[in-house]
């Protein structure tokens, strides 16, 4: 007496294979849904906005009239914002990562800092806006300046940069540290001359991706009161300014249909900026493929 009837197994196998194929199709479909959505989104916004895209659009200030509305103040403002966010967030992020990876002892304080960083990454961006509003705009009286917005955004992307920098530092083989210490180098010399140079491609790639998140963030800017209708360019970090996503938000929320086209054109500009940043990140990543 056998427990398994091979004939029955073969008969059932057909059904099981059909179920397998069916679900494979469903899972493939699930994968394609997001790709399809991305394609529709890009196509739709591309066709909507391309007609409004022109040199004038890039070179005009905001306007009540959709046909005259331009993105100059927002584009330049976003660049100003990045000029504050990039150094601030990279110095803080890389410094924190070096501390955690190279200096921190395995104690409660370190564990607390680590947990804190991962929790901070989960705080909604609008809450960072409230922090910026209270601390930078009001308590430190920076107003709705480039500096206030830049500091807020830096804190927002700080966890991303710390984690990216930690991973790149951790990827450096211990043998390189040994080699440096073995030559009589001090810890800081080893960090500056061996570890950081080897980790820089990874740090840069991660930082650029984090910055591309900052350049597209809207909610914190709204909360700290960044205006949209601006007819001048900032001349310093204490000036008020506007940014690409703010401008797009303003155009999108206007009732006139014509402004939707302007908003789509603005989105194209924003996406091109993001594409450029991501391309740079990809080039860095490929150029400095790990050698050890």
């Amino acid at each position: 007496m056998k427990y398994i009837d091979q004939e029955l197994v073969v008969k059932r196998m057909n059904g099981r294979n059909i179920v397998n194929t069916l679900f494979k199709g469903l899972f493939l479909l699930a994968t394609l849904v997001s790709l399809l959505f991305l394609a529709i989104l890009l196509y739709r916004i591309g066709t909507q906005g391309i007609s409004h895209l022109s040199w004038d659009f890039l070179n005009n200030f905001a306007s009540r009239f959709p046909e005259k509305a331009g993105i100059k103040a927002a584009l330049v403002g976003s660049l100003w914002l990045m000029a504050v966010v990039a150094p601030t967030s990279i110095i803080l992020g890389v410094g924190s990562a070096i501390y955690l990876e190279e200096y921190a002892k395995k104690n409660r304080m370190t564990a607390f800092i680590r947990t804190n960083i991962s929790n901070l990454a989960g705080v909604p961006s609008v809450v960072f806006g409230l922090l910026g509003l209270t601390i930078f705009v009001r308590a430190l009286s920076l107003g709705n300046s480039v500096l206030a917005a830049g500091f807020t955004m830096s804190l927002l992307i700080l966890p991303v940069i710390i984690v990216a920098a930690q991973e790149s530092i951790r990827a450096i083989p211990g043998e390189l540290r040994d080699a440096s210490y073995g030559m009589g180098a001090t810890k800081w010399q080893t960090i500056v001359k061996v570890i950081l140079p080897a980790a820089i491609p990874g740090i840069l790639t991660g930082s650029i991706l984090a910055l591309s998140r900052a350049i597209g963030e809207t909610a914190p800017l709204i909360v700290i009161g960044i205006p949209v209708i601006i007819q001048f360019l900032p001349s310093g970090v204490m000036d008020t300014f506007t940014a690409l996503p703010m401008q797009i938000y303003d155009w999108s929320s206007r009732p006139q249909q014509e402004f939707q086209v302007v908003a789509a054109a603005g989105i194209i500009v924003l996406m091109v900026v993001l594409l450029l940043m991501n391309t740079v990140a990809a080039i860095i990543r490929n150029k400095f493929q790990k050698r050890y």
Binding site: P173, L176, A179, S180, Y181, M183, G184
Partner: peptide
């Protein structure tokens, strides 16, 4: 370590 040099198991030149 400035007086005493060391060579390791795995070649470990700096990149």
């Amino acid at each position: 370590r400035t007086r005493v040099g060391m060579v390791f198991q795995k070649p470990n030149p700096f990149p």
